[in-house]
Design a protein around this nucleic acid. Sequence first.
DNA 1: CAGTGGTCTAGACCACTGG
DNA 2: CAGTGGTCTAGACCACTGC
Lengths: 262, 262
Amino acid sequence: MSSNPTSPPLSPATQAGGGGATPAFSPLYQQIKGLILHSLQHGEWKPGEVIPSEMDLAARFRVSQGTVRKAIDELAAENLLMRRQGKGTFVATHAERQVQYRFLKLMPDVGDAREEGPAQRTILECKRSRAPVEIARALQLRTGDPVIQARRILSFAGVPTILEDIWLPGQAFKGLTAEQMAEYQGPTYAMFELDYGVRMVRAEEKIRAIVPDDEQANLLLVSQQTPLLSVERLAYTYNDVPMELRRALYRTDTHHYHNSLS
Amino acid sequence: MSSNPTSPPLSPATQAGGGGATPAFSPLYQQIKGLILHSLQHGEWKPGEVIPSEMDLAARFRVSQGTVRKAIDELAAENLLMRRQGKGTFVATHAERQVQYRFLKLMPDVGDAREEGPAQRTILECKRSRAPVEIARALQLRTGDPVIQARRILSFAGVPTILEDIWLPGQAFKGLTAEQMAEYQGPTYAMFELDYGVRMVRAEEKIRAIVPDDEQANLLLVSQQTPLLSVERLAYTYNDVPMELRRALYRTDTHHYHNSLS
DNA sequence: CAGTGGTCTAGACCACTGG
DNA sequence: CAGTGGTCTAGACCACTGC
């Protein structure tokens, strides 16, 4: 909480190529972007809060407003910051109405996701456990490291539609309980921000078609012949650190996975 | 092909609010973007070609380089233009090595899409036909309007992996034959650009898990119990005009649909 | 009204490409 | 070397928010 932080030395333009093969020219605004990113990572500004104005940041980093602007532009494009004209620039959060459930691409076949509203959640399980090989590899842990494992069902209009298994690194999410997951209203990722200071920034999904086993079929109230969408999601915090593995089964008889390509 | 086109009248900043409820303020760079878009739509510059330099465009539109720059920035972000430092700005094309198969998100479970190489194509059918209701609605045609209908199989390493049914508006693709689809090396979307002047700009996909019928299973050499990914894609040209409906089935035993969320 | 982000300009200089 | 896109600056003004 330094009250008036000053800038570390910044190279006017070309720098960083310490004799390596690549000159690695890095423009000023990229360096600024890195500094802002650093402040975000270290919690100088928390999700939902305003960051200093462009003018303030320009003074702090001793660059022009335009350079700060370009840095912020990129961070906003990556959904790490949110600009609001006349008000300021804010740290993005999963708690906002507009961008809630940003990572959930399952849409109702008829109607709108908004009128459908948030899903009803049923937590089946939430326990401390040890990471199996594949989970450990995905989360960049060692096999046997402590993890939190949770299983839940999401229902729309009373119809169970999503069955999710969630794995979280035990260290960062120490003390997470089923009650906590059940009680919190709103996106789970918003709870992660609030209670554990972990902000999910991006994710990768691998999607396949599968047939459920006995247990899975029963939980989703479908026959064992009903094909389901298998969605494996790895979610990352800042700095490309994986922080959650989520293996979900989606019913696609009344919903579909929607994707925009460009 | 006007040799030295001059600019239509541009409002300095605020304009367009012809008494309507919304003032609809449109910044200069948005208007410039619209003009460039117009030139793209009308083929003033074709896919793969350079467009005039930022300075030239600035002179033509009588604005500063920075304003043109911002317009081009957005078009580049939408993959309509490609910037190459030192060379110029180019009209994007599906024929480029780098961005080939941009809309195909099916990846091999092991290895890289590039080492796997392009798929072998087997055209099963390509005929003139009349649009059924749902196809017509999707392509914004009238029921019974002429359409081209094609069916093909894509194989990787000899394994049939994708079964595609393609519908195209007959008017724009008059004369498309099975031979043409089979002979052309490279992405089908590149052929559309070259032979029909139709450039696909973006697409929307709806994904479900299904079980194949008899015929589908036979064509993909899988049992009828094997679940498949159903991928329905609507591809658009400029101006949000739908120009292709593609209904595909993906085998996901050796491949998966990959999606990046941010 | 002051403060914020958003637009626009003009000019200088840098990095990259190709002749 | 000239021409392209890319960076950076300084300053003016506009649109939006909230006091």
